[in-house]
Design a protein around this nucleic acid. Structure first.
Lengths: 148, 148
DNA sequence: CGCATTGTCTACTATGTCAATTGACTACGT
DNA sequence: ACGTAGTCAATTGACATAGTAGACAATGCG
């Protein structure tokens, strides 16, 4: 399961991608556009900054902006940064982590690995540019935003 | 993420599948074979019983056993029973649940759905008979159980 | 300079879920 | 009737998550 925090992070990055090239985006604008509690978003953007995803400018015309091109940035990178290794269980990492007492004889391992790989394929194959196109498709066809 | 409890449940069902046809299996045997805390397993088997997956017999020669054939029972069924709908986020259910404020305009929705579908495909395509075969493959080839 | 605007940092606190434990109870077979 | 084994409800402790609060630092404009 993707945590709320991580979903907020993805939405924030998406918003920055959408407004790229128009100078820094204020934290309040992001919060409003993506329905994120402002003060919480603050902490999230901070983490994103330390992770090298975004950068910021202070002062009057300050705000946040993406460091890299939206086309180079995948959803998978952001998720891994917030949630750690992708996968349905903790024991598929192999090397480092707390091995369960059944290591080597666990019949489920193969299945967990296949699932993890399937998930990663989708996440790593989705860039934020892809999402921007997705949005265009949403707003052009008579979608729910207008009809409601 | 699959909870520990759900993993225990899967292992318990697997153990029952392995010992099918030999009469009821005692709770202690399952716990030992699959490294599950006995008293916790108790609660799990209880849930499994209420879900119609297993049944039990009391008394001297009592124990648990599968209700249905292991070949008809998929991992997906058990997981859904313990974890609810499969998927990386809560908002893909559509109909019933707490809609997020971005409903209809969320660009991530498509991605979440593709991930959920990929996961479900694996889980629903894996029966406990498949896992039994998996075990055979594990123990035949010079595997880690023997070599360590 | 001095002030408002905006980001930065640290700490705190509810809330909830998960994993596991406990103890008392009930049925079955011999 | 006795022991074995399953049944049930309630509680606990640990931990992560979601969100809050307040003081602080940099920037730019008049």
């Amino acid at each position: 399961m993707i945590s709320q925090k991580c979903q907020y992070a993805l939405r924030a990055v998406f918003e920055l991608a959408r407004q790229a090239g128009q100078g820094p985006v204020k934290i309040g604008r992001i919060a409003e556009a993506q329905a994120i509690p402002v003060r919480f978003l603050e902490a999230i953007l901070n983490q994103l900054k330390q992770g090298g995803f975004v950068n910021s400018r202070r002062g009057q015309e300050g705000g946040y902006f993406l460091v890299h091109d939206a086309g180079k940035l995948t959803v998978g990178q952001v998720i891994r940064f917030f949630e750690g290794p992708i996968g349905p269980v903790g024991c598929t990492d192999g090397k480092n982590k707390p091995r369960c007492p059944l290591w080597g004889s666990c019949v489920f391992l193969g299945m967990w690995e296949r699932v993890g790989q399937a998930i990663a394929e989708v996440y790593d194959g989705t860039t934020f540019t892809d999402l921007l196109e997705q949005e265009k498709a949403l707003t052009s066809a008579g979608c729910k935003i207008k009809s409601r």
